[in-house]
Nucleic acid binder design. Sequence first.
DNA 1: CTACAACTTAAAGTGGACTTTAAGGCAAGA
DNA 2: TCTTGCCTTAAAGTCCACTTTAAGTTGTAG
Lengths: 158, 158
Amino acid sequence: MPQLTISQVARQIRLRPSAIRYYERIGLLPPAERQSGQRRYDLTVLYRLAIIQRARQLGFTLSEIRHLFFGFRDVTRPSERWRTLSKKKLAELDDLMAGMKAVRALLRRLMTKCRCDTLDQCGKGIFQNLERDLAHGPFLAGNRSHVKYSIARKKLTR
Amino acid sequence: MPQLTISQVARQIRLRPSAIRYYERIGLLPPAERQSGQRRYDLTVLYRLAIIQRARQLGFTLSEIRHLFFGFRDVTRPSERWRTLSKKKLAELDDLMAGMKAVRALLRRLMTKCRCDTLDQCGKGIFQNLERDLAHGPFLAGNRSHVKYSIARKKLTR
DNA sequence: CTACAACTTAAAGTGGACTTTAAGGCAAGA
DNA sequence: TCTTGCCTTAAAGTCCACTTTAAGTTGTAG
């Protein structure tokens, strides 16, 4: 029954073989059957990979996707699994959007309202408002969170 | 004149000393004066760090911030510098928001409209729509871009 | 027999913004 | 003198989702 090689699967789902091996290594995919050492797949792997792709696109981490697959009792239906994960993700997304709107506003103000003669002058102003700004709470953090959304970038040709 | 030690600066601006040393290493801060090997700073470093903080908060990378400081002719006023950078960032931000709205919609549909009995069934549906979805263009990519916004995370206590 | 394509593995590399570690220096106070 | 506390450096580690590399295996074609 299993007839697809890893690169045939990769081509169909638009992934690199290395990604598929990686998913297997971290337990997102079950260990594939082997024919003289080489992985062979049937169609169902495409479905599982499609879910992974879509979930990634929705901002889920691989560990959240593992939860989607394995973190529920077997009888739990997909709709409920998706609901559980999506609810959390939507909340995160809404936080993120709020933060981004605040950033947008700040960017606009910066563009239109800066009258400083030097950057040090800008800095002084910012520094003196530090206390007040921090009181607001960090609406946007640096970059060490589990939720990251990124703008699509041209594929590295290779 | 320079009287502050690195950890006094760090405390005032709410950074770790290691971050300040890192900024110096990558050329974001000028090499600090030394007193028997140790860095000593005056107030202006706080202003510069405040700008870095604020710019990071606005989604600028350290390399963009370097551009803010050093990428213009000396006579270029802060307002114009900010305008140049902000324009680009606003465009990126708008793309990002659009992508996130699409994701939001998909998440909502997933929550309310999934009637699959098994995840494989979900996967089959997704897989069969792959072509169509890809035609849309990747409105959101995985996570390898230079623009990342993240939800604030509780500081690692340590 | 040789060449070649496609596969295998483990381990190391990537990017960005730092932090942590290891090993050591220096000044002040008991 | 010894301890304490803060500082120094270079190098390695962290996170995440992979990719790349190096070295080797297998099957097929000429």
